[in-house]
């Protein structure tokens, strides 16, 4: 098997771990400390923010504005709507700037 196959299977394995993991852990242990719990709850926010942050500085003003638009709309509207609108904004800004 080549490297990509291993990469995908490793990604699949860790994904499955997250899907059954807490059920398996909790059926053995009781409660967890509130700080640990708070850190776990913050994982998606923290990691995805860290992932996307460089996009704010590696592109131009059109991209930064599109990111802001996407974030503002996502406060109220469904995710797919915010992505669609911010893409339209991005295309518009790119033709203007």
């Amino acid at each position: 098997m080549d490297d990509l196959t291993w990469l995908f299977l490793a990604c699949a394995a860790v994904t499955y771990l997250t899907r059954c993991g807490r059920h398996v852990i909790l059926s053995r242990f009781g409660t967890i400390h509130h700080r640990v719990s708070a850190a776990l709850d913050a994982v998606p926010t923290a990691v995805m923010a860290a992932l996307v942050a460089p996009s704010l500085v590696t592109h131009g003003p059109a991209e930064v504005l599109a990111i802001l638009v996407s974030g503002l709309i996502a406060l109220r509207a469904p995710l797919m709507f915010s992505v669609a609108v911010s893409m339209v904004v991005l295309v518009g800004l790119r033709t203007l700037i």
Binding site: A49, V52, A66, S70, G71, I73, S82, V83, M87, L90
Partner: peptide, 14 residues
Amino acid sequence: FILPLYFTGLVIGF
């Protein structure tokens, strides 16, 4: 640029 826009929306969803 769909990936950064998508992740931004996802993060704000939290």
